[in-house]
Simulated scan of single mutants.
Amino acid sequence: MLKLAIFFLIISLIAGLFGFTGISAASAGIAKILFFLFIALFVLFLVIAVFVGKAVT
């Protein structure tokens, strides 16, 4: 998922460089959503791992 966010960020930068502002804004929006979704899932799984790790020991 993080790879997709980076991919859309690169697409956004290239589109902005060539003047395609609509495509650039859309790609940046998608990259932002994917990045925050990745961060939320990372934190969720980190909390789950901490609780499960304590329950096993």
Rank of each mutant, 00 (worst) to 15 (best):
F38Q: 02
K3P: 01
G16N: 15
I14R: 02
T57F: 03
G19C: 10
I10A: 10
F42A: 07
L44Q: 09
F51P: 01
F7H: 11
A40Y: 11
A49W: 11
I23E: 06
A25T: 12
F18K: 08
L34S: 04
L44C: 08
A25C: 03
K32F: 14
T57S: 15
L41H: 08
A5C: 04
F51W: 07
A5V: 06
V56D: 04
G16C: 14
L44F: 12
V47N: 03
F45W: 12
F38W: 07
L37H: 01
A55M: 09
T57P: 02
I39E: 11
L41E: 15
I14G: 05
A31P: 07
F18P: 00
F35A: 15
I48D: 01
V47A: 13
S12G: 12
G22E: 07
V43M: 09
A25S: 14
I33V: 15
L9D: 14
A49N: 02
A5R: 03
L17N: 13
F51I: 15
A5Y: 08
S27V: 02
A49F: 14
T21C: 00
A49E: 08
F18G: 01
A28M: 09
I48E: 04
L13T: 07
V56C: 03
A15I: 09
F36L: 13
I48Q: 01
I11F: 10
S12V: 07
F35S: 10
F38Y: 13
L13C: 11
T57H: 01
G16I: 03
F7C: 01
A26L: 15
M1K: 02
F51T: 08
K32D: 05
A40L: 11
F8M: 10
I30V: 15
S24G: 09
T21M: 11
L2Q: 03
S24Y: 02
G19Q: 06
K32Y: 14
L4D: 14
A28L: 15
A40E: 05
T21K: 11
L2M: 12
I48P: 00
L46D: 06
L37C: 00
L41T: 13
G19K: 04
A5E: 10
T21H: 08
M1R: 02
A31G: 04
A49C: 04
F20R: 01
L46I: 05
I39M: 10
A26F: 15
V50P: 00
L46N: 01
G19N: 06
T21Q: 14
F51V: 15
F51L: 15
F7E: 13
G22N: 10
V47D: 03
L37F: 03
I23N: 07
F7W: 04
I30H: 05
I33R: 07
L4G: 08
A49Q: 04
S12Q: 06
F36I: 13
I10Y: 00
G29M: 07
I14D: 00
I10E: 13
G29D: 05
V56W: 06
I11W: 02
L46E: 11
I6T: 12
K3M: 05
L4E: 14
T57R: 14
I48A: 08
V52W: 07
I10N: 05
T21S: 12
L2P: 00
T21Y: 15
I39V: 15
L37N: 02
F7I: 08
V50Y: 07
F18M: 13
A55Y: 10
G19D: 10
F18Y: 13
I30E: 05
I33M: 11
L13H: 02
A28H: 02
